[in-house]
């Protein structure tokens, strides 16, 4: 497991260097605009892309064919991608948080309570996004996976459009659950764990 995570970090480290430039630009932008949430969103976006990039690199070189000749279980191969994603989110947020707090300190743009609420929801959204992306990419690969993903994003948008009335009622109900939003990242982690079970099931049935 450690070996696989280490290999993924070594594989994507060059990407980190190129994306560091964009990150600096975003840090400057968010300071100038006094919008700390932009930075948080951007970080979550970058780390999600990194986790998918690791999968794409594997697919390009047919890594799974080789990895499955090594004494590594299929479960570990899948789980390593999930742990990599969580580690990337922690590293990303760990990097962004001082900047975000500094911006907030000097601007008082968002109240501290609201900020932690936003923070929890962004982390949860990141977990949920990975919980959806990883099984799709593991099952279909990066090219077909993108098509499936577009289809999956289109269906909810279409349903929201059709069931507009009900959705707004649902959102009102959801806003009443605000007090529980601090637990949201744990719910996100639970969804991620369920997703890992699905991905392992898919992977074990795959031929290489």
């Amino acid at each position: 497991m450690t070996a696989l995570i280490m290999k993924d970090f070594m594989t994507i480290q060059r990407q980190f260097k190129s994306q560091a430039i964009f990150l600096i630009i975003i840090v400057i932008m968010s300071v100038l605009m006094q919008q700390s949430t932009i930075l948080l969103f951007f970080i979550v976006f970058i780390v999600t892309i990194q986790a998918i990039t690791a999968l794409t690199y594997d697919e390009l070189c047919n890594w799974d064919k080789y990895a499955n000749t090594l004494p590594i279980s299929k479960g570990d191969i899948v789980l390593s991608k999930y742990i990599l994603s969580i580690m990337l989110i922690i590293i990303g947020l760990g990097f962004a948080l001082p900047f975000v707090l500094l911006i907030n300190r000097f601007t008082n743009h968002i109240a501290t309570t609201n900020f932690f609420l936003t923070f929890c929801l962004i982390v949860t959204a990141a977990f949920c996004m990975l919980a959806m992306l990883l099984p799709i990419y593991i099952k279909f690969g990066s090219i077909k996976g993108r098509i499936v993903l577009i289809a999956l994003c289109f269906i909810p948008s279409f349903l929201i459009g059709v069931l507009d009335e009900y959705v707004s009622n649902f959102l009102v109900t959801l806003s009443k659950l605000q007090d529980f939003s601090y637990f949201a990242p744990f719910v996100g982690l639970f969804i991620l764990w369920l997703s890992s079970l699905i991905s392992t099931g898919i992977y074990k049935r795959k031929d290489f």
Binding site: K7, M10, D58, C61
Partner: peptide, 16 residues
């Protein structure tokens, strides 16, 4: 063929 990510080098493969 060698089925390892092309961005890795022989030293990194040793670590793995």
């Amino acid at each position: 063929d060698l089925h390892v990510p092309e961005t890795l080098n022989a030293t990194q493969l040793d670590k793995f």
